[in-house]
Structure formats: structure tokens, C-alpha cells
Design a protein around this nucleic acid. Structure first.
Lengths: 257, 257
DNA sequence: AAGTGGTCTAGACCACGGG
DNA sequence: CCGTGGTCTAGACCACTTC
């Protein structure tokens, strides 16, 4: 046998999906049907389905059936827009959403707390691991869909005792607040990763298996030191990052540019 | 029962990994051991392990055992470096690699062909789906590790019959080649997605389940029209994208900036 | 040869969603 | 109620790695 039976079944089903024989939203044959169709045990059929689930091609709904996943990507977060004058770079709390069809992000939860720095946070902020940092956490929905988990980390010696450590919302934005504290932002580095969600992210985004998350780690610097780390976590199935450099023809620009 | 048994087993094992009781590279108990330890059937144990595999936490090696996955991320691709003068933007065939430890990318395969445009390509280039486009395909390794799948698509009316359609390597780069054809690049848009790999990508990168890919779609424009679509596909477990804006302190800059 | 994970079977009961 | 997917069991044989 060249290939395992469950892989053959998965391949046949995958073919039917990519060829359009099974269209998005269509129901696959039930598991007992597939057992008869491919002369396999139910466990083998489920192994085949698990492969397709992990590729994000299908989803199962208990009591209903198994369905071809329609890939929806309505939200685009604007990583950065670069034109001749770099002073125009935004640096808001969350990356702006572009595209006309989606609604505005709404914050469904917001907390400020002090906690010991995780290793990755400590490394970015150049402090000792476990040293206290101020964390501002935001959960955001768009049109009722959870789309963004946002954590901002500030070194204790910069933000301790300031409005960053206590205030709920900061109207003028934390970049301005940092500038008023004497830490003008001179630049930032974005590091973009993709990985599978942890249990917290799985829970908040209500993700099915086979959906990764996109993580943007934005480290902001004054002229001499790191002053902030902002970590954006997006669901990979609904969010795409955009990044515009130079001049592009007018008609290709999303409305909000 | 509040939670399925296989989920409880997975949770216990996940705890041991995150707490460091099971360190990276450590071997987990064998499946028969776990069967005894948790009083479950082997299939249930394997369901638990499948969860952790899909989160990228462990890997199995037939005949050897199951091991805690060490997360290696040695390669960083530079998406864009933005300073005061935006003319300094690179626009090479592949995004440059930064960081001193990794070797140089080597092209292991390179082909040029003409084929009908897939819908996503047609949309980006503003041509009819199925219309012919010229595709330049590159596979790249770093230190023997496959890291990049790169496809560049050119509209037929621009690149047809030119060196872009025939030549092997283009020494001066395709951006310059396009400029010599009268299509000076005025700007580009990057759209960054994350998803699970398809079978081609799985095969080239030799990925285990639970590892997503990062896709960068870079559409380049002249002053009036799209002139190129370049699609970069990176493995999510070894590659991170970087993006630098403004001025950051010298010591934080990777060597190649 | 022995131990590991990979594949497969046959059957059971449960939980959910809809008529 | 019935059909759907979700969970679980017990046992079998195969393929790979090491000794």
C-alpha cells in the first residue's frame, strides 16, 4: 500500500473541494456514509476528516454534519503606511482597520495591571526577567466577532505611578502619554510571527483547529532605549495585515488611507 | 464528566511542558506507558497527543518516541526598512535575511513558465482570470533548511517576449528589468496572511502538522497600474518577518540594516 | 528481538440539533 | 425520535529504530 487509507480518503475529499464539486458551505457525506463509501472503519474516516480539519478546509458541527469551510477574510489591519514624510506614521493603540465593509472595532474588555515580565517581554524591554512591568490588556470585537488580543507592556521605571499605570482609557493615546513623560518615540520594530493558538487564544477567538494566529510584536524606542512593547494577536482566518510603501494608484487604495 | 478524558490528558501533559517539568527535546512517556498512567485506551492517549501535535508542542518520531518540540526561529526576513528617505526601500527578488547567525539563502530550484492566472493572481494584476501570465518560481534553502517558496507573476503584455519570460537569472533584478521596459515601480502593497500549508508546501518544507505558513503577497505598481505580484511563502516555525520604521538605537539594529 | 509510533478494525455509548 | 458528530474501548498488525 503506497499510502495509508485515511490519507487516500482525505485526498479524494480534498480533490472534490478544490475542484469545486464540494463547494463552500456544502455538507460532506455523513461519517457512516463515508464508512460505506470507502469501506473503512469509522475511526479511519475520522482520521481522514481530522487531516482536512487541521488544514482548515472543513469544520464539523455536532448534531448537524461536516461542512466545507468558506474562507472569509473581511478584516485588514494596516501595519504601516509609508509615504515621503515618515512623520505621518500612525502609532495608535491598535492597528487601524481598513476596508469599507467592516464595522468599527469595539473594546469588550480593558484591564491595567502590574506583573512580572515574561522572558520575551523582558528581552524586548531590556529588563530583568521577572522584573515588574505595567500591562494594559485589551480585547476587541468587530461586528461582534472577536478579532484582536492586545497587550501593551511598559517598563516600571517609565510608567510606574503615571496615568499609564492607573487610568482606564487614555484619550490622547499612550504614545503621546509617553512623550509627555519625556520618552518621545523615535522608531519601532515590528516582528511578525505565525503559530498555533494557545488555549487562551483558542477560547477568546472561538477558533476551530486548523486556524493559526498572527502575532505582531511592536517594540517602540526612544532615541536611547525601548519604551514599550505592544503585542497584537490576530486570528489567522479573518485577519490580514497590510503594509503600503511608496505611491500606488488612487483606485487601489482602501478608503481610509 | 466536565471534560473529555483525552483533553484532560492533554492538559496534564501541556502543564508539564509549560512548567518545564518536560523540557524541550525531552522524551514523553511511551504510549503504552501513558495508557497505564492515565488508565485509558491507546486511541484516547493518541487523541490527547494529537492535540499537542496540532499546537506545535510535541513531535513524534516513529520507532523512537514522542518529544517536546524546541521552538527554533533563527531566520528573520526583512519586510521593509523605512527611514527618512523612502527611496532607500529595497525591492529585491526575495526579502533579505537579517541576523548574523544564519547562512545565506541558496536557490535550489528556479523555473520560468507561462500559465493561466489563478483568480487571486488575476485580481491583483487586474487581468481576466485564466489570462496567461509569466511566472518565475524559486525554491530557497538556508543552511540546508527549506525556508522560502517564491512565485513572481508578471502580466503577459508587459513581460511577454522579454528577458523576464525567458532568461534564467536576471542579474540586475526584476525591478530594474521592469523599469527598463518602461514600468518604473512607484510603490507596493504587502498583504500578509497566515494559514495552514497545502500539500505542496507541506512537502517542500517537510512540516509536521501544527505548523502554519506565512504568506506575503507583494503587489507592485507603476504610477498607473499593477506590474508585478510576488508571493512569498515562509514556514511559520522558522521564519519571522521584521519591519522597521523610524530611527531605533544603534545597538538594537541587526547587522545588515 | 524488543520497543516505539502508525494504521486499522468493530463495536459501544453519549451529546447535540432538528423534526 | 432519529441522525449527526464526539468520545472511548480492546485488540490487531505493520513500519521504523536500536540493540
Amino acid at each position: 500500500m503506497a499510502q495509508a487509507k485515511y490519507q487516500q480518503i482525505a485526498e479524494r475529499l480534498r480533490d472534490q473541494i478544490t475542484r469545486g464539486i464540494l463547494a463552500p458551505e456544502d455538507r460532506l457525506p455523513s461519517e457512516p456514509d463515508l464508512v460505506r463509501q470507502y469501506d473503512a472503519s469509522r475511526n479511519t474516516v475520522r482520521l481522514a476528516l481530522a487531516l482536512l480539519i487541521n488544514q482548515g478546509l472543513i469544520v464539523t458541527r455536532q448534531g448537524l454534519g461536516t461542512y466545507v469551510q468558506a474562507p472569509p477574510r473581511p478584516f485588514t489591519a494596516l501595519l504601516s503606511r509609508v509615504r515621503a514624510q515618515p512623520s505621518a506614521h500612525h502609532a495608535s493603540t491598535a492597528l487601524p482597520v481598513i476596508g469599507s465593509e467592516s464595522g468599527k472595532p469595539e473594546t469588550v474588555r480593558f484591564v491595567v495591571e502590574t506583573m512580572p515580565a515574561m522572558p520575551s517581554v523582558a528581552q524586548a524591554l531590556e529588563i530583568e526577567p521577572g522584573a515588574p512591568v505595567i500591562v494594559r490588556r485589551t480585547l476587541q470585537h468587530i461586528d461582534g466577532v472577536p478579532w484582536l488580543l492586545l497587550n501593551s507592556y511598559f517598563p516600571m521605571d517609565i510608567a510606574g505611578g503615571t496615568e499609564l499605570a492607573h487610568a482606564g482609557r487614555i484619550p490622547q493615546g499612550s504614545v503621546k502619554a509617553l512623550a509627555e513623560l519625556g520618552y518621545q518615540q523615535a522608531g519601532f520594530v515590528d516582528e511578525i510571527d505565525s503559530r498555533m493558538p494557545d488555549s487562551r487564544e483558542l477560547d477568546f477567538f472561538d477558533l476551530s483547529t486548523g486556524v493559526p494566529v498572527i502575532v505582531v510584536n511592536r517594540t517602540s524606542y526612544s532615541t536611547s532605549r525601548p519604551i514599550r512593547l505592544t503585542r497584537y494577536v490576530y486570528r489567522g482566518d479573518r485577519v490580514r495585515l497590510a503594509h503600503v510603501v511608496g505611491t500606488i494608484p488612487e483606485k487601489y487604495r482602501p478608503a481610509e488611507y
